Amino acid sequence: MKILAADIGNSHITLGAYDQETLVHEWRIASRPFRTADEYLAVLSVLFDHNGFRPERMITGSVVPPLEGEWEKVAETLKIPLRIIRPLKPDLLPLHVDTPEEVGVDRIVNSWAALQKFDPPLLIIDFGTATTFDLVGCEGDYCGGIILPGLELGSEALFRRTALLPQVSIRKPPSVIGRNTIDCIRSGLYFGWLDMTHGLIERIKSELKKDVCVIVTGGFSAAFGQDAAFAHHIMPTLTLDGLHGIDMKWDQYMG
Rank of each mutant, 00 (worst) to 15 (best):
M1H: 01
M1K: 02
L4N: 02
A6C: 13
G9Q: 04
N10L: 04
N10H: 15
S11L: 04
I13A: 06
I13M: 12
L15K: 05
G16W: 06
G16P: 06
Y18G: 01
D19I: 00
E21G: 07
T22P: 00
E26T: 14
A30I: 12
A30S: 11
A30K: 11
A30W: 04
R32I: 13
R32H: 12
T36H: 04
T36Q: 05
A37W: 03
D38E: 03
D38A: 12
E39Y: 04
Y40K: 04
V43L: 07
L44W: 07
S45C: 10
V46R: 02
F48V: 03
P55D: 02
E56I: 02
M58I: 11
G61I: 10
G61V: 10
S62L: 07
V64S: 00
L67E: 05
E70D: 10
W71L: 10
W71H: 02
E72D: 07
A75V: 12
K79W: 12
K79D: 00
R83L: 13
I84F: 09
L92C: 08
L93P: 08
P94V: 07
L95D: 10
D98T: 14
D98A: 09
T99V: 13
P100W: 11
G104P: 14
V105A: 02
R107H: 02
I108M: 10
S111M: 05
A113F: 11
L115E: 07
Q116Y: 13
K117C: 13
P121E: 11
P121H: 09
L123A: 13
I125D: 02
D126P: 06
F127L: 13
A130L: 01
T131A: 11
T132C: 06
F133M: 08
F133L: 08
L135G: 06
Y142K: 04
G144T: 10
I146T: 09
I146H: 04
I146Q: 03
L148A: 13
P149A: 05
E152M: 15
E152Q: 14
G154T: 03
S155Q: 11
S155R: 11
L158N: 01
F159H: 09
R160L: 14
T162L: 08
A163P: 12
R171Q: 04
R171V: 05
K172L: 12
P173D: 07
P174S: 13
S175R: 09
I177R: 02
G178K: 00
I182N: 00
D183G: 10
D183L: 03
I185V: 13
I185T: 08
I185H: 03
R186W: 08
L189N: 08
L189T: 06
L189W: 12
W193V: 05
W193A: 09
T197K: 05
T197I: 12
H198V: 01
L200G: 11
I204Q: 01
K205D: 05
S206L: 11
S206I: 09
K209E: 07
K209T: 03
K210D: 01
K210L: 12
D211L: 01
D211Q: 14
D211K: 04
V214N: 07
I215G: 04
T217N: 01
G219F: 05
F220Y: 13
A222L: 14
A222M: 08
F224R: 03
F224E: 01
G225R: 06
G225I: 07
I234W: 11
P236D: 05
T239K: 11
L243N: 04
H244F: 15
G245L: 14
M248E: 05
M248W: 02
K249I: 14
W250I: 08
Q252Y: 15
Y253Q: 00
M254N: 08
M254V: 15
G255W: 10
